[in-house]
Write a protein that binds this DNA or RNA. Structure first.
Lengths: 138, 138
DNA sequence: CTAAAAAAGATAAAAATAGTCTTATAGGGG
DNA sequence: CCCCTATAAGACTATTTTTATCTTTTTTAG
């Protein structure tokens, strides 16, 4: 239960690798894919999603590639995971609004809300900077 | 991401309903299914899984049905969820043993371990007694 | 203009999910 | 013993999601 998909795993590997690279050096998708051992075409799809929401910036054409959309300390693991897997939803009844007609009577509902918050908090507390081994204090 | 399946949702609904019933009254599967609005054949499969690990006790034949395998305060939401969804595994790298060759180098690994622990702790802290509205202190 | 590179969309195989159906087994009552 | 009721177990199926791949298009440097 609650398992990250391959896509999510690949997404993390890919963007963490990008975060280890020099800040302003455009990185070829094919290089990233090779470095983190992910099918290039699949990683392409993932980086397209990153690009749409600004997690990475893409450059097309000769000399093109990817760089981070903002500094590594401003990108959290939550950003990355939600970018490709969608929001953290332990159960359908826990959506932003209130689709769950049982919400106010169901005693399980608050438990899922709690799970959601905890998981989000944990993932939001980890930045790419840390994951890339560029800690503030070594 | 991390979404409970229908099976998990049905499992919770079913066993919580059973917990609301008088302690020693055998309950028909068909009655439970009707009460919690779950396909009876599907709920049957779920309760078979419960039965195997002792979460419920089953009685066959005329006058048969199900009762809880132990008192409602001794069954946690974690027990129920893991019974049908398997262990809480946020990522493949977080298994009981250590299948992940990266475990000791990968900086993401401890994050998943943390997520796993938090989720398990939350779910383990909630018993069927509470969910069934039979709180110790009302 | 051309080659390089990402973007976008279509397609497809494999796996997981969500069930259903059939047959077997067990128990109670006449 | 026979029949009815109820769960157990296993085979089977449809749908959805995951995990990709392939092709075409767009962009850009030189």
């Amino acid at each position: 239960m609650m398992e990250l998909t391959r896509k999510g795993e690949y997404a993390i590997r890919g963007i963490v690798y990008l975060a280890t690279r020099p800040d302003d050096q455009v990185c070829l998708l094919s290089d990233i894919a090779a470095a983190v051992d992910v099918p290039p075409t699949f990683l392409a799809k993932i980086f397209q999603q990153f690009s749409k929401i600004g997690l990475v910036k893409s450059y097309r054409g000769t000399g093109g590639g990817f760089i981070l959309g903002r500094t590594a300390d401003k990108i959290t693991l939550l950003d990355v995971v939600e970018a490709v897997e969608g929001p953290i939803i332990p159960n359908r009844c826990v959506t932003g609004g209130d689709d769950c007609e049982r919400s106010h009577t169901c005693k399980v509902h608050p438990v899922w809300v709690s799970v959601q918050k905890q998981v989000r908090d944990i993932l939001a507390a980890v930045s790419l900077k840390e994951l890339a081994g560029k800690q503030e204090k070594p």
